[in-house]
Design a protein around this nucleic acid. Sequence first.
DNA 1: AAAGATTACAACCGCAAGGAG
DNA 2: TCTCCTTGCGGTTGTAATCTT
Length: 297
Amino acid sequence: METINGLMVCSPSSASSKQVAARSSEEESTEVRRGPWTVEEDLVLINYIENHGEGRWNSLAHSSGLKRTGKSCRLRWLNYLRPNVRRGNITPEEQLLILQLHSRWGNRWSKISQYLPGRTDNEIKNYWRTRVQKHAKQLRCDVNSKKFQDAMHYLWMPRLLERIRAASTGSCPSLPVSSTSSSNGQRLVHPNPNPSHLEEQYSSSESACRTMVSSPVPVLSVSDCYSFQDGETNSISDEQRAAVAPEFDVHDEWTHIATSPIDANYFNQGSVVDADEYGSWGGGIGGSFWNGDDIWL
DNA sequence: AAAGATTACAACCGCAAGGAG
DNA sequence: TCTCCTTGCGGTTGTAATCTT
């Protein structure tokens, strides 16, 4: 491995025989640049795709003169250079979608990304690994554990919904069933207008906040998420909360979260998490885990 | 201000599926 | 049917930027 212009350049002679064997023939004839793309390389790729279209990445890499693999060109284009790629902070709506979709499909990032136009599977994957898994680690549990799922469904999602609601006009954002909107006004439209694979529903009795329903996209309505088995919203009194989590101050942020309707439901339906454990989530992680912006992952 | 730790994200790797010949 | 090639996906790594001490 040698370095040219600050980039790692790998030639067949410097790689192991196993590596060379694994590589496609396109890489064997010439040295291949690796590492960060330069502006010049980006321009070459963009210009080439503008003139010839995307696809056939190996021949593109060769014909364009880029000393990159087809794979690398494809990745650079799809994850960075392609028009309409959205960058920047993941909005609360997007966070909620990701949580919902991941609970449904697991690590199928490409599928999840189809519901977040402009977001790449790589970006969603990175978001999950760096933010969500970090919090699971702080909770000392696995992201697939019930504890973490409960935290997600009964605390994070309602909190996200609260924030979405707060960002709206102040009323419950009754979003369209077939599409919804991100904070920047971009419509989030399912790629398939009538996907049969989404016809099954989450059971409302299983979780009040699993809002994936028969609509093409998850319904991001506060009323959906806050509805109860009896169809009414509810709230938990200070006395009730004190009975299950007496260690929390009524006025702190954590308690505010705990008193949201969805949490009341959580307690009312026979909590899977006892008061001690519940308390440890909020207070046991430096007290900041659920506070302020950190709640938004 | 400096060093170390942490975070965020771009990029790479291996594998599998699917298509063409 | 088989082989080769391309493409796409998910896991992992490297590193620049940022934060903390």
